[in-house]
């Protein structure tokens, strides 16, 4: 048995194999934890959606589908660059890894910038929950669904629930993107020192898993928040 004084194998592990299994199982458990964390929010969404489906559909049609769509494409692309980055780390291709990490960071920032413009528009239109919240049902829909004045007042309140759920879900997701950017930047340092190879690449691989998870959450958020009930104007 050798000493691993300056090797990447921590002293309490027997082998790289054991260390890798532990890191990977740990990451999957962490993602399970994340799933339950978001799961609470998705439950809120599903319950309110099923109780107020028309109200949610009308409020949801206010969201900017173009920006949302572009963001979906941006995030999926970043997942691709990250997957390629993991491959590069395994093959110990230092420069490729740095490139892919930078691309992922860039796309993630791009996502947040677009999100910023979406949020800003909501502040302008007063559809941010709180004291200044205002929501007006478009006239054509009032006519189409024959909404009486009482129902209209109710609907404007329900819209605030929709936007509460919207901000909670996209906000928490955005926070995860932000944390992801932080981790990716932090990974650049060991990557530039060429630390990763076939034996030791768990940090990159685990961050990849995290990043795919963040992407996957958005893949659910986009249709649930932006697309469901879009046909309401038709």
């Amino acid at each position: 048995m050798s000493t691993h004084a300056d090797s990447a194998l921590a002293h309490h592990f027997e082998s790289f194999e054991q260390q890798r299994t532990a890191a990977s199982l740990g990451m999957w458990l962490f993602l399970a934890q994340e799933l339950m964390f978001f799961g609470g929010l998705f439950t809120c969404y599903l319950i309110y959606r099923s109780l107020n489906s028309l109200d949610f559909a009308i409020a949801s049609s206010e969201l900017d589908i173009t920006l949302g769509g572009i963001n979906t494409a941006v995030l999926i692309t970043s997942s691709l660059t990250m997957a390629l980055g993991v491959k590069a780390a395994q093959l110990a291709k230092k420069n490729q890894l740095i490139g892919y990490l930078l691309a992922t960071i860039l796309l993630a920032c791009c996502f947040l910038v677009i999100k910023y413009f979406e949020y800003a528009a909501k502040f302008e239109h007063h559809t941010v929950p709180g004291q200044h919240f205002e929501f007006h049902v478009p006239p054509d829909l009032i006519e189409k669904f024959e909404l009486g004045p009482e129902r209209l007042v109710q609907m404007e309140k329900r819209a605030e629930i929709f936007f509460s759920v919207y901000f909670a879900m996209t906000g928490l997701h955005g926070l995860h993107v932000l944390i992801g950017i932080g981790i990716a930047i932090w990974l650049l340092f060991p990557a530039s020192r060429g630390k990763f190879n076939m034996d030791y690449h768990a940090p990159v691989e685990n961050f990849g898993l995290y990043w795919h998870f963040v992407d996957l959450v958005w893949i659910f958020l986009f249709p649930l928040l932006y697309l469901l009930g879009r046909n309401i104007h038709a």
């Binding site: 809120c44 929950p129 629930i161």
Partner: peptide
């Protein structure tokens, strides 16, 4: 000011 459990908003 989000209102997910706020009965005033439904």
């Amino acid at each position: 000011g989000l209102g997910i459990f706020d009965p005033a908003l439904g």
